[in-house]
Design a protein around this nucleic acid. Structure first.
Length: 485
RNA sequence: GGCGCGUUCGUCUAGCGGCCUAGGACGCUUCCCUCUCAAGGAAGAGAUCACGGGUUCAAAUCCCGUACGCGCCA
């Protein structure tokens, strides 16, 4: 039991799950699955002001959409399941208080009566004197009498954890190696706020221990807090888990990935038509790699090969271009029937569902290798279901070409009644038409394409005609000819 | 300001003292295929391994410093 690997993702429900969080979730999940361990989700909602149920919903939806299942944690915004619950920190306040009392009783934490204003003043002075602006432990050194006076005055207090004043705390990071921090340079962390609530670093330690985490894999930004956390583990008589700190994800301009770089929420990627598998594969490779330079992984592959050693120490830039390439790869690998199902919500949104026209499956199969995003399917196939909208340039260049009107008019007649109305027969007949007239392929093929689809680029011509069917093809050829002078 | 982390083609990365005249992937360029666009195939351009010192017969790889970026304290 104690040997079982346990990892977790512990988001604050103060917004959507962003790309960085998604990757952290993925890595924790992969690591747990790789070692046949457990992956836990915990909601860190102690920031009552900023935490919302909507955020919880969005985060759970995101993780589910990514295809990452958790063994313990929330079921919805309020309920959860698992032997180490509750998994909402707001429901664990009593637990935190218990350990807080223990630390105070053991003399490992103390009341700090300094007000916000006083602390700010202290900081200001420190800045002026060019000292590091950290809490110097004023209330830690209070005499019994001073303490009694403070108490008598009814002054509000926070509770700070006593950091050791000598020695160093070594974080044996699974990705970065041993990182050493001088204890006397760490300040006494507030573990319980004046406003009567535990702080992040305190809850985190207690939960990770009580939930029996073996590995804490999290973002880079937590590395600096880790020594304090480790000391809290020690003070409580616990053995800290193993830590691994992931580098961050940057936007194209090298700054931390944020809204102004475009989509950052996982749900936005879903809505743009990325496949969950693409996200898993791409994110896995953004900061992790095998020595074989493999790019495309099945989930089994990923689980079998993922390790912390392969994680990158330096930050990685999120590259939409490569993401798109990969999505195209996976769309091409998707069976047509599945692709049709995946495309439906997007077609629905574009108003293309339920319109008369060729069978959807045939149309999608025809354009299969073109799609990079599910969201671009509607525009690539809409001319099968909606009246032709001529691209002005195509119209001018191709249809207005000398002889085009006549060619289209004649072709409408030639193709009417052709049997079978199938790609092979169509190609034979049209090539024959080209030869009869002593024309070049392009003089005929291109006008047909534009007449029938309104554009110069699209699926292979004869299959497209077959799928459109005789009536639509003949009508569109005539219609295009009629528009020409 | 202190502490900590990071720095290999535009981007993601391989590399853990000699196999590196630095490999792969995305992107880019050219060519092939071809009814267009894709897809596919082939070739190519692209990295003074941040900089400066060491250590060593030998350094992208080890050590020290500097610069820049980032994080935490806030």
């Amino acid at each position: 039991m104690t040997n079982k690997i346990r990892t977790r993702f512990a988001p604050s429900p103060t917004g959507f799950l962003h790309i960085g969080g998604a990757r952290t979730t993925l890595y924790n999940w992969l690591f747990a699955r790789r070692h046949k361990g457990d992956f836990i989700l915990r909601i860190e909602d102690t920031d009552e002001v900023r935490s919302t149920d909507d955020s919880v919903t969005a985060i759970l939806d995101s993780v589910k959409w990514l295809g990452l299942d958790w063994d313990e944690g929330p079921l919805d915004e309020h309920r959860d399941h698992g032997p180490h619950g509750p998994y909402y920190q707001m429901k664990r306040i009593d637990i935190y208080r218990r350990y807080l009392d223990q630390l105070v009783q053991d003399g490992k934490a103390y009341r700090c009566y300094c007000s916000k204003e006083e602390l700010e003043e202290l900081r200001r002075v420190a800045q002026l004197e060019k000292r590091p602006p950290r809490y110097e432990g004023r209330c830690r050194a209070l005499s019994g009498a001073q303490r009694a006076a403070m108490e008598a005055s009814g002054k509000k207090f926070s509770i700070r954890f006593k950091m050791p004043t000598s020695g160093a705390t070594i974080v044996d990071d699974q990705i970065r190696g041993k990182v050493s921090f001088e204890n006397n340079l760490q300040q006494d962390l507030v573990i319980w706020k004046t406003t009567d609530g535990p702080t992040y670093n305190f809850c985190c330690v207690i939960d990770d221990h009580l939930m029996e985490m073996t590995h804490v894999v999290r973002g880079d930004e937590h590395l600096s807090n880790t020594p304090s956390q480790i000391q809290i583990y020690y003070a409580l008589g616990w053995t800290p888990p193993l830590f691994a700190h992931l580098s961050m994800i940057l936007g194209p301009d090298g700054s931390k990935l944020s809204k102004r770089h475009g989509a950052t929420s996982v749900l936005e990627y879903r809505d743009q038509g990325y496949l969950p598998h693409t996200m898993r594969n791409y994110l896995a490779l953004l900061g992790w790699s095998t020595s074989e330079s493999q790019q495309l992984f099945t989930d089994e592959d990923l689980i079998a090969k993922f390790d912390l050693e392969g994680c990158q120490k330096s930050p990685a830039t999120f590259d939409t271009v490569k993401l798109n390439w990969m999505n195209g790869e996976y769309i091409r690998q998707t069976p047509v029937d599945d692709l049709v199902s995946l495309a439906k919500p997007f077609l629905e949104k574009a108003g293309l569902l339920g319109l008369p026209g060729p069978e959807l499956k045939r149309v999608i199969a025809l354009e299969h290798e073109k799609f990079k995003l599910l969201s671009e399917i509607p525009t690539l196939i809409e001319f099968f279901y909606k009246p032709v909208q001529f691209d002005p340039k195509a119209f001018d260049k191709v249809l207005r070409a000398p002889g085009a009107k006549q060619i289209l008019t004649d072709l409408a007649e030639v193709l009417r009644g052709l049997r079978p109305f199938e790609a092979e027969a169509l190609e034979a007949r049209i090539r024959n038409f080209v030869a009869e007239r002593g024309l070049k392929n392009g003089q005929v093929f291109h006008p047909i394409r534009v007449a029938v689809s309104g554009r110069t680029e699209g699926p292979t011509l004869f299959s497209m005609l077959e799928i459109m069917g005789e009536d639509m093809v003949v009508a569109r050829l005539k219609d295009a000819a009629a528009r020409l002078p």
